[in-house]
Amino acid sequence: MAKVKGDVVIDIERCKGCEICNTACPNQVLSMSTQVNSKGYRFAIKVNADCIGCANCAIVCPDGVITVYKTKV
């Protein structure tokens, strides 16, 4: 079976740091930054390379912050 590789692009300036995406990810790819964006929010970041491109994070994000890509490898 072909393995799936995914990646997310996080528009950190639009992120409001709600953490809902963190809890929606099946592979614990997402966590929160220690830095803040220009609005003062900690933003979502990737903390491992285990993204499978399932888009769970993107579809629960209230602010449409996350873009998702997926490919077979």
Partner: peptide
């Protein structure tokens, strides 16, 4: 510094699964 896990090589239109719709401004 946070570690970088970006995979820019897979950011192609055919691999796009989800992005904010243009019906939202």
């Amino acid at each position: 510094m946070e570690q970088n896990f970006d995979l820019p090589e897979i950011h192609t239109p055919e691999n796009l699964v989800y992005t904010k719709t243009k019906v939202l401004t």
